[in-house]
Design a protein around this nucleic acid. Structure first.
Length: 284
DNA sequence: AACGCCGCCTGATCGC
DNA sequence: TGCGATCAGGCGGCGT
């Protein structure tokens, strides 16, 4: 499940590899991924276009492209989201495409593959989702004061509220639980009931947890030749590689295991139809 | 305006 | 052993 840190690492590695590349051909295998953009419009806009920049916004990938010279016009945005199971990688053209390939950009010897088994992801020309995003948690725009003001307006449990992308962008189910554990705040506490010291702790731990996850992800070997997906360059995890997430995360997916801080058994509860993991003793 | 709920998807896992 | 039911979850849309 890619959240802000995973998308950041992907973006960091992929940006220099895409810059300047021209899309020779576009293949769409799952139209739903483009929604609400039509396949015709998508192909028309992207065939012959050149990648200029790639940036992350929340959990979104924001590509800037220049239309082909024959068409002209200003640079435009292509917006990607990996959803639950999306993967994006640059591969040799000879490498087989995965079963749930959604979109392929042909560059000649290589191609950019967007694959997504559950199809919760998006690759679209509609950038409107970006307008609804709250501040970047690692930016100066994300201040304790603004965070506190937003929390005060909500009666929802703080864990649920952290998943609201209009509050702060990029936090998903994993880092919401991890941050609350580190801040020693109960996930069930109503957002508006947090004391000012708790708000400040949560503000700080959010930044710490996300920053550390980026640093951790940056150490992973993301480039390989001959992995299970056959990519020359691979981003978004090799499905055949061991997953070390479990060693790094302190509470996520650790129902019943001892808390690293106090030894009490960690618990799993369900909030807004999503799993929350926490220590009932450390987090009041 | 804020909130709760549903639908979208498929692979993994569970129970019989 | 095989198969159907259940679960997981980000986000948009909708009703309240």
């Amino acid at each position: 499940m890619p959240e802000l840190p995973e998308v950041e690492v992907l973006c960091h590695h992929l940006a220099p590899l895409l810059q300047g590349r021209v899309i020779r051909a576009v293949e769409v295998r799952r139209k739903k991924i483009l929604a609400p953009t039509s396949e015709a419009k998508f192909r028309r806009a992207l065939t012959g276009a050149r990648f200029l920049t790639l940036e992350r916004r929340g959990k979104y990938l924001v590509f800037t492209l220049r239309p082909p010279a024959a068409v002209g016009g200003d640079p435009f945005l292509l917006v990607g989201h990996l959803g639950m199971t999306g993967r994006l990688y640059l591969a040799k053209k000879s490498a087989p495409l995965p079963k749930h390939t959604a979109v392929v950009f042909d560059f000649g010897a290589r191609r950019l593959v967007f694959e997504d088994p559950r199809a919760f992801g998006r690759m679209t020309l509609d950038a409107s989702a970006l307008d609804k995003l709250g501040p970047e948690p690692l930016s100066d725009a994300f201040t304790p004061a603004a965070f506190a003001a937003a929390l005060r307006r909500s009666s929802q449990a703080v864990k649920v509220k952290l998943l609201d992308q209009s509050l702060v962008s990029g936090v998903g189910n994993i880092y919401a639980s991890e941050s609350l554990f580190r801040a020693r705040i109960s996930p069930r506490l109503a957002a508006r009931r947090l004391k000012s010291a708790q708000v400040h702790r949560l503000w700080q731990t959010l930044r710490d947890v996300l920053g550390e996850a980026i640093a951790w992800g940056s150490t992973l070997p993301l480039q390989f030749d001959g992995g299970t997906s056959g990519g020359l360059f691979y981003f978004g995890r090799d499905p055949g590689a061991p997953d070390h997430d479990h060693e790094r995360l302190l509470v996520y997916d650790r129902d019943g295991q001892p808390c690293v801080a106090c030894g009490a058994p960690l618990r799993r509860i369900v909030q807004a139809a999503r799993s929350t993991f926490f220590c009932p003793r450390c987090q009041r």
